[in-house]
Design a binder for these strands. Sequence first.
RNA 1: GGGCGCGUAGCUCAGCGGGAGAGCGCUCGCUUCACACGCGAGAGGUCGCUGGUUCGAAACCAGCCGUGCCCACCA
Length: 863
Amino acid sequence: MQAMAKAADLDELRARKRFEPGAVEPALMRQWLDSGLFHPAPEGDASENYSIAIPPPNITGGLHMGHALNGTIQDALIRFQRMSGRRTRWIFGTDHASIATQRQVEKELISLGTSREELGREGFLERTWSWRERYGATIVEQYKRLGASCDYGDERFTMDAAYAQAVSLVFVELFERGYIHRDHYMVNWDPGSGSAISDLEVEEREETDTLYRIAYPLADGSGEIVVATVRPETMLADSAIAVNPGDERYAALVGREAILPLVGRRLPVIADEYVKTDFGSGALKVTPGHDPNDFEIGRRHGLEQHSVIGEDGRMTAEAGEGFAGLTVLEARAAVVAGLERDGALRGSEPYTHSVPYSHRSGERIEPLISLQWFMRMDELAAPAIAAVRDGRVRFHPERWASVYLDWMENIRPWCVSRQLWWGHRLPVYYCDACEETYVAREPPASCGACRGPLRQDDDVLDTWFSSALWPFATLGWPERTDALRAFYPTDVVVTGRDIIFLWVARMIMMGIEFAGAIPFSDVYVHTVIQAPDGRRMSKSLGTGIDPLVEIDRSGADAVRFGMLAMSSTQDVRYSVEKIEQGERLANKLFNAARFVILGIGERGGAAAPRPSAIEDRWILSRLGRFEAELDERIVAYDFPRVALTLYDFVYGELCDWYIELVKTRLGDPDLDATLRHVLRRTLMLAHPVMPFVTEELWRYVRVDGEGLLAGATREAAELALDEEAEAALGRVMSATQAIRNWREQVAVKPGVALSARIEAAGYEQETGPLLARIARLSLDGDGDAIAVAHVAIPGGAVAILEGVDLGAHSERQARERDRLQAEIDRLRAKLANDAFVRNAPPAVVEGERAKLAALEAELEELR
RNA sequence: GGGCGCGUAGCUCAGCGGGAGAGCGCUCGCUUCACACGCGAGAGGUCGCUGGUUCGAAACCAGCCGUGCCCACCA
């Protein structure tokens, strides 16, 4: 039952000389979506099915290069597995991205002349939801442009009602298990977003500030202690002066008091191991309210906590008259001026150090003491560490495992509360009357103790708290749904290294703790694509390249090919050339298929191969190798070689050789069958990389009853190599190249037939005539004619018999002889080396001997 | 301060123990009846430097130089 191509279809195809992606992509995507292939029924269990949970894109942005790379890799895996016959689901959805989204909406409000505060919490949330309705779909449509075969029919959002239920359940359970608690603690305060942020959202930047040395007089008037600081404004909140307990210079001062300049407060001199004797003066001003280290020292020594910098980044009333209300920088200048006036400054010098900045707002972090919710991580980390250590979770490349382990083994508490409005509001309720706290999904109507009204905590959770539940909350957890059974655990998570801690580690911990299984067995950490000049790709730097523009220009298949070809285990620069390589490959595939399809015409032809010539046996053997290699590369996450292998096969074997070799045989039914088979297999193999062009061509070669290529199953073929055909064709190919090269050298046009005689072994039967045809040799001349030239080919030479002007020939032949002789000398020396023959593996030695013999035969023919 | 990468053809990158590779760019030649987004033939590299291991090193080891990233509480 073979489909016969319709004459009208063929005429249409004949007119299409180029593959035009823009003209076919939307319709093909439509067909895929309508087919339901991307939306599998939740049947079977996760061990037999294949699933990936997409790193949910933020609703704030458009598709950037990172998405394009990340999405292409996942889609290649998903399509490959789907075509291998597995029930396959690519879990899809978007992330509410608390801070990023809130900032975006706030920016819009300001441009409209209003503000978050003016709208109030309810109004703001309403506004943000409608913002999400307007813009949230953008990124989804853009994933479709890429050809991503996500399950769009079951799209999730991290603030869906059901998802929110899962989030609050997890929070409450963690609280009840004692992992979550509330505390006054030093946090990274981001004045830009008006919220605490986690350690992972802080980035350090090198900066040169001024290091001031300030004299603190001793209370008894017997002298002074000099301390050094880059933040003199924080001295207003000093609680002590600390020295190292072993520092003899200060031993006598410990226990006495100093006077804080400008303020007049008496500060105890304390001894603490933290203080380095060899830094500065060896004495440290201790500011528990505004420095993380000092905070710890303060806890150890029971020091007072003063707060002189507020959450708005300005000096508080406690900073005192003359300072309150100033910005931090203004206060710094004022403090320095005051110290100078009072003669307390003992010097200053430029000082380069790292300064914390908010990754979110870009503003400088203010370490502040704040009342926040913290999550203890060490116990949750233990099983997640074990899962990686014993190989139940594997990182690719492996080195990321140790990065993960290092972080996990030194994991610190996670500040999960954010002073924002957009996000999952904490399921925490307070009674202001009697100070009771309730942590519950469904709080009582009023305080159980005093019947007073309850007030919900204003804070929301860190976005990554909900992201951590993504692989199972998307599948309906905590309900025991069919989807959960069918697709959890997923198989792999594909991501950039920047979110290994933020996301991957937390998914593993939460998956183990709540879903009862590690969420995926493999973590593929892909490259980061940089701008062509090596800088970071970013909108603000103006270095971003829009993948959608690239898709418009070159087609989605080209971009996908380029992404895979560029991907690497190290960072790489964006290369348009790789996209263009993909564009050419798509076009090449299109035209090769067009040639085959039009060549077969309306004859139909069986889909099973019927090799009747040596080149048929050759291409089938090469196809087998190609399949095996492609399968191997893709499951090894070696995407650049997936792309390269595909390119090499299509260009280097299928088009440049096979199709050229069989052109004269068109019309032979055996050839039709073989061509059709090879083309079908090639389309199947290329489909995970280039789904559009292959799907477009598939309709011409599919048999009756077959559906879309995206849904086709490629049964794994047994690798049946035909070594004999490969060796024979290998000789023909080398010989052809040698003869073409020779023609070029002696300026004989490619079209001119040369009268010749093959004086070499290995060209018996079909192979000789094949060589003659492809290299344009005429073998039926006078068998005894005298050769005017010899061209070395594997196994001997081709004697050229007549009709050639050999102006450049002898020079060229001499060069060829020299080359062969040099190679022969090298091999002889090697084989004469006793140590080599004795120590090298016998197979290697044997190989070298064979090489030598072949080269000697070639040289002999040239004499 | 600790850790992880990377330095190979003009450019972007593969190769990671047995004859230096790809794509682009460059040169030359082709109206070869699928494709000029094509076909064919070429030129181009002391594989960062120095030492070591080995019969054999671009590949393994050590040191150095250059470069990128991650982690880290020295004012």
